[in-house]
Amino acid sequence: MKFLGFIIVCLTGALLLYGTGEFPGWGDPHSPASIHLSNDYIEKAVEQTQVPNLVTAVLADYRGFDTMFETAVVFCAGLACFLLLRDFKEKKERFYRHTPTGVILHVKDSKKVLKTGKEFEHMDKDWVPSDLIIKTICRILIPFIQIYALYVVAHGDFSPGGGFQGGVIFGSSLILLAISYDLKVLVKRVKEKILGIFAAIGVLIYVGIAAICMPMGGNFLDYSKLAPLVPGDPHHIRALGMLGVEIGVGIAVTAVMVIIYINIVSEGRHEEGL
């Protein structure tokens, strides 16, 4: 296999290198790619969409259809992880710590569930939560990260970032919660059902905004036709449409990232894990 792989790799590499022979030089401002379409985007985008971040303009408007499916891919990944890993059966073995004494109980029968509270604390088999410093710092950090994430989503029109990046960052903040405490804390705060619904709703916001344009008389995704529905400057309607779409993306991505993480780390049991 190694040898075969090596040969395939060499052949493919040679093919690719052969193709570079006629490439325009790196960074050549006159290469076809830099002239044909890109000039149109650069010169017209601000005027047409009122969004200075060209990437966002192209992403959410000119090629918004791509992005919609990209979000669908994310949704699909979330569904996939749920379908593949989620295991509704409870684990047989459990560990409890008797808080006053520090004695650890190992319960092998799944039917005996101790009531956790002041006396007993359910603890992970494999994972010992981090110490106080990390916990505290994370607790302080997480709100800031989340606010930053919201900023990234909201300000995507003007600066780098957008729904996807914001969503990932928001998702990461929740994952950070799980890592610094343990999984149960996260699962308790963010219900699985909520995550599942939000993943779909995020995409639904996107598709919905895009689809409303059709009864309004435009083509699919044509935000400019939304003007009658939204109060405010119709001049900026495309930028608003993009914002709405980005929010949808953000919601979906956040939910899916957490779904994937929880399912992978707990092998789908949502009980214990990193």
Partner: peptide, 22 residues
Amino acid sequence: AFTEASVGAGVSTVFFVAAVFR
């Protein structure tokens, strides 16, 4: 770059560690 920083260096690595953990 922003996306890669949050995804590649962030979430992907976390998924990776989670998978290695399991």
